[in-house]
Simulated assay, not measured.
Amino acid sequence: MNKALVIILLVLSWATQADSINALNVDRAVPNSMHLSFANDSNITPKKGDFKIVNYVLMSNEEGERWAVITLTNLSSGNRELGEEHLLALFADGSRFMPMEFKLGFKGNETQSVTVSFADYKFPILSVYSSNDL
């Protein structure tokens, strides 16, 4: 009976520890006033759109997953759809990548937050931007 209880406790302890390794940690909330100047030799830019980033919070875990909670405003008075091609992340090595595929509908002049994944990457995200934030 005691051996079975010890084994169950060890398994539960290991499962809890495994979940905490995958947990995302907030890296930081970033003000829009931060200026970075990495070369963009490939001229990678987000798709033109009617979205402006209000703010964002960067998150990651020890396994290299990169996420961001981004609050955006639709600058148009009409309905618009935000997709991954409207956003780019700038990483600490100067690389730029779009988030994983997503779609989010906006009403005219609406502000919403969305959580997006930038997959796994060795370097942290330094900033996230849209065509209206350049």
Score class of each variant (00 low, 15 high):
residue 68 A to Y: 01
residue 54 V to S: 08
residue 123 F to I: 00
residue 99 P to N: 10
residue 84 E to T: 01
residue 37 S to A: 14
residue 47 K to M: 05
residue 130 S to G: 14
residue 127 S to N: 02
residue 100 M to N: 14
residue 69 V to L: 13
residue 123 F to T: 07
residue 60 S to Q: 06
residue 102 F to K: 10
residue 33 S to C: 04
residue 91 F to L: 12
residue 14 W to A: 12
residue 81 E to Y: 00
residue 119 A to L: 12
residue 104 L to Q: 15
residue 105 G to C: 03
residue 40 N to T: 15
residue 114 V to L: 10
residue 112 Q to Y: 06
residue 83 G to S: 15
residue 67 W to E: 03
residue 106 F to M: 05
residue 101 E to R: 05
residue 3 K to I: 12
residue 13 S to W: 04
residue 24 L to M: 13
residue 124 P to K: 08
residue 96 R to N: 08
residue 91 F to S: 02
residue 30 V to E: 05
residue 60 S to E: 06
residue 26 V to H: 02
residue 28 R to Y: 03
residue 108 G to P: 05
residue 59 M to S: 06
residue 77 S to Y: 10
residue 99 P to T: 10
residue 115 T to F: 03
residue 51 F to Y: 09
residue 15 A to D: 03
residue 92 A to Q: 08
residue 14 W to G: 03
residue 78 G to E: 14
residue 15 A to C: 07
residue 107 K to V: 09
residue 54 V to M: 08
residue 134 L to Y: 04
residue 45 T to M: 13
residue 77 S to D: 15
residue 132 N to Q: 14
residue 97 F to A: 03
residue 74 N to P: 07
residue 82 L to C: 11
residue 22 N to V: 09
residue 66 R to Q: 12
residue 116 V to N: 04
residue 1 M to P: 06
residue 63 E to H: 03
residue 14 W to I: 12
residue 26 V to P: 00
residue 45 T to R: 15
